[in-house]
């Protein structure tokens, strides 16, 4: 298996230096297939939100295909993650086999910048095919596996798990910006880790727990 090469001229600027250190070459691997696993519906929404925020830079550079069976994504919401929803082409299919075929075809097409695939099962052989496809075309793939039967080994470059965590409202009534516990469970040639991230207006930010001590909040309220 090839080492993921850097895609020429493209670098995903996540704004998260600490997280990027976990990857080989201190850069988010593009031209590779990433795997996300979620079990609950709430986690699935958080995962899709995280993916959307992550790819917002890529979407505006090229075409994005969102292939899924049983899609629940609500296009207007993508705006909040910095994506123009009309730039995404959704491919909605029923059968797992068709989803895989469509993902593979899309990953082979080098005019596409990103492919997001939503399905539950992905065998090692299937993931190997996807990985081989992107090694040729340098397309970045995100496979979101919702409620898989087993978390089998795959040929994907990384495996993630995103869970929503309690948002911070700084004393203002209502709900705050989405916050996630981002777990990088596996990464090839890198160091797995876990971070707590907030996303506002399509930008990531670490949650620095020390920064918001009670006094700080008191000050903000007073200010």
């Amino acid at each position: 298996m090839q080492r993921p090469k850097k895609v020429s001229g493209l670098r995903l600027n996540t704004g998260l230096w600490e997280m990027e250190k976990a990857f080989p070459g201190q850069a988010f691997p593009l031209g590779a297939v990433h795997e996300f696993i979620s079990h609950a519906k709430e986690d699935a929404a958080a995962t899709n939100g995280f993916i959307a925020a992550l790819i917002s830079q890529l979407v505006n550079k090229g075409t994005t295909l969102w292939v899924s069976n049983k899609r629940t994504i609500f296009p207007p919401a993508l705006n909040a993650f910095g994506i123009e929803p009309e730039r995404i082409i959704f491919i909605d299919l029923w059968r797992q086999k068709d989803v895989l075929w469509a993902i593979e075809e899309a990953l082979k097409c080098d005019a596409v910048s990103t492919v997001i695939g939503e399905l539950s099962e992905l065998s090692f052989t299937e993931s190997r095919r996807l990985q081989l496809a992107v090694e040729q075309s340098r397309v970045t793939g995100f496979i979101h596996r919702y409620n898989p039967k087993i978390e089998n080994v795959t040929a994907c470059v990384s495996r993630w798990n995103i869970k929503p965590i309690i948002s911070e409202t700084y004393g203002i009534p209502g709900t705050g910006f989405p916050r996630w516990n981002v777990q990088l469970l596996k990464v090839r040639n890198g160091k797995p880790g876990s971070w707590q991230i907030e996303c506002s207006a399509g930008q990531f930010r670490y949650i620095n727990r020390q920064a918001f001590t009670d006094t700080e909040i008191q000050k903000r309220k007073a200010g």
Binding site: A44, A52, F74, P76, L78
Partner: peptide
């Protein structure tokens, strides 16, 4: 605010 997942 609009949810990222909308139930059918």
């Amino acid at each position: 605010p609009r949810p990222v997942h909308l139930l059918p």
